[in-house]
Design a protein around this nucleic acid. Structure first.
Lengths: 199, 199
DNA sequence: ACGCGCATGTAAGAAGTTACATGATTTC
DNA sequence: GAAATCATGTAACTTCTTACATGCGCGT
């Protein structure tokens, strides 16, 4: 039940579905994502609930825009959500599932390659977040006197930066552990696990 | 497309849906979760695809157990998934969405309370993961000579430990930033944002 | 007799993804 | 003339959650 509320937050300034999708690609994508095909019907449902109202306006170029804005009920629901305490959902990391079972491959070199590729992907992601922070760092009052409407998004961004740094450190730690194991295990010669186990 | 693969990994040893649910509650819950009502039909679909076979056995107490085990095709699919490279999905953090828009409440004290509660929840979570690591730490060969079937799960667990520690550090950083702002802003007296804006 | 743990599920709906469809205008 | 951007959506499907349903055996 979070996408509608994130849309409510974004709609403190009126916007079309297309505009909102653009915001998901920008400042919000480190903690949520949504496709247009999900956004459009969600906005309809929210309007039906009375949280939003819409107007159709001609566009400067392209087809007409359907611009949504908050109603009183919508603003009330947003406030209720914000005041309800942190919504801690289940985290899902498919790549940890892969790593968890990877002894099945019986080859530590495969695990190492996996971790190296994962590290590269996470590092690219971190670079993007750092670019966003660099932009914020040029704002007046950074870092201690940002206005509240910039302080809150910046605080959310910091979580992304700090956890990604931690994940990179974890990748490095894991790769080093593998290398130590390989250095030690090289003499004993076991690499592929045997097809049958000796009990 | 990850739950079936996680089940494949777990089913290297035969198990019933009920058994598998128990494993989600234990060693796997820091990166995935699933309800029984999702597990049962998923196992059926996997059997229909030829990845699993099942036998019905009488239980020691309670109703009959349906025990699943991997077929050759299932083991092949598991290997394929493990060798396919890291599956990096979209991360979703509803609480970051709340924080992002929280200037709407116009009250930094509310944000502070939010962060304090979030910190408590994350700390409790970290304590659980630390308990799991403490158990692993008693295994022979810890930490440098764990056998491969323990090394991989332990590596996955470490990611949870390190990122949770980073999140706690982020909570602390954010709470401190709020306190510094409040100390500085107290003299200027603005707390609730005004109902109307002066342009 | 009641509740708890074992063990299986169904039903209904919300949430999310992928693919497809339409048509205008602007840029190369 | 082709491709990108603007702007809207539908359809089919998978995934996940919540609530409900059933029935056995064990402990108190």
């Amino acid at each position: 039940m979070s996408l509608p509320h994130i849309l409510l937050g974004m709609l403190r300034e009126p916007a079309s579905g297309y505009d909102l999708k653009a915001r998901f690609e920008e400042d919000v994508r480190h903690f949520w994502s949504a496709e247009l095909s999900q956004i459009y019907p969600t906005l309809r449902r929210m309007e039906k609930k009375g949280w939003l109202e819409s107007d159709t306006e001609p566009s400067e170029r392209g087809p007409d825009r359907v611009v949504y804005r908050l109603t009183q009920a919508g603003r009330g629901e947003l406030t209720r959500w914000l005041a309800a305490g942190p919504e801690v959902g289940t985290e899902r990391f498919a790549y940890l599932g892969q790593l968890f079972f990877m002894d099945e491959l019986g080859d530590l070199a495969a695990t190492r390659a996996f971790m190296v590729e994962l590290r590269a992907r996470l590092a690219a992601w971190l670079a993007e977040l750092e670019a966003i922070e660099a932009r914020i760092a040029t704002a007046p009052g950074y870092p201690d006197d940002l206005p509240p409407e910039r302080f809150h998004p910046h605080a959310a961004l910091r979580m992304g930066l700090l956890t990604l740094a931690a994940k990179l450190a974890w990748c490095d730690e894991t790769i080093e552990r593998i290398d130590r194991r390989k250095a030690r295990g090289a003499s004993s010669g076991r690499k592929r696990r045997p097809a049958t186990k000796e009990a």
